[in-house]
């Protein structure tokens, strides 16, 4: 005799459970955690370098950076003096909650107020794995073409912000920038869009202001909790 037994569980419920615990810890410790996602070569590490370069040395910032192989990114980011850990995934195409949990064992979370996670370069798989972050940020460079939000809608739907990178290259590519933005808004009407160039520095102030706004909201919650 065969019987159908209802289960109704998330397939990735184990990752979801860990991500839920991480999110709770981040909130309790007033740490803003951001998950940066893009295809390889869109400029995640470069944006992080420029961001760290603008921070005061006493900022309580730490970074996790994921790649299939090499410690190159961690070496690039370590120059700025903030704690960095490379997560080498081997052949895994995304970071998952367990990897973040394990990496955080080495740090005192209470000593941080910003944790930046650079995911493995991939527009598909990282969108399925919650890391407990407050927000996902998707980067898309102008050389990648305006149709990517339509081809890979998941990550654009789940990201609070789309950062369009390498805008200094606009004169050299046949990209329709307005079309790219409209495509992102089609799949996610509320998505915020920031355009910048790490090469020229154009638009970096907009990105830093966005980051500060998110950090301010965490600081406000911390002040409320203390008073």
């Amino acid at each position: 005799m065969t019987t159908v037994v209802p289960v109704e569980k998330k397939v990735l419920h184990e990752n979801q459970r860990i991500a839920g615990e991480l999110r709770k810890r981040f909130e309790e410790q007033h740490v803003l955690c951001l998950n940066l996602i893009s295809a390889p070569g869109s400029g995640k590490t470069t944006l992080l370098e420029k961001t760290l370069n603008c921070f005061q040395k006493n900022e309580k910032v730490a970074l996790l950076t994921g790649d299939l192989q090499t410690e190159n990114d961690a070496r690039r980011l370590a120059v700025y003096g903030f704690p960095v850990q490379q997560i080498v995934t081997g052949s895994v195409c995304h970071l998952d909650g367990k990897m973040i949990e394990r990496a955080l064992e080495k740090w005192e979370l209470a000593a941080l107020d910003l944790l930046l996670i650079e995911n493995v370069g991939n527009l598909v798989c990282p969108s399925s794995y919650d890391l407990g972050e407050a927000a996902k940020i998707v980067l898309l460079s102008v050389t990648e073409g305006e149709d990517k939000p339509l081809k890979y809608p998941s990550i654009f739907v789940k990201s609070d912000v789309m950062v369009i990178t390498k805008i200094d290259l606009l004169p050299y590519v046949s990209l329709n920038l307005e079309r790219m933005k409209a495509n992102a808004r089609q799949v996610h009407p509320g998505i915020e869009i920031i355009e910048l160039s790490c090469k020229t520095g154009d638009g970096l102030d907009v990105w830093l202001a966005w980051l500060e706004r998110r950090r301010d909201s965490v600081r406000e919650r911390l002040l409320c909790a203390r008073s």
């Binding site: 005799m1 065969t2 019987t3 159908v4 037994v5 209802p6 289960v7 109704e8 569980k9 998330k10 397939v11 990735l12 399925s128 339509l150 809608p153 998941s154 739907v157 789940k158 808004r185 089609q186 799949v187 996610h188 009407p189 509320g190």
Partner: peptide
């Protein structure tokens, strides 16, 4: 990719579902 609202043609909609990855049931003998 999402569509305009079929009732009022607004483009402004919020995602309610379609990103799930759910194990619904098992069948056993």
């Amino acid at each position: 990719l999402g569509e305009d609202c079929p009732a009022c043609s607004s483009r402004n909609s919020r995602l309610l579902g379609g990103d799930e990855l759910q194990l619904a049931s098992v069948e056993v003998e």
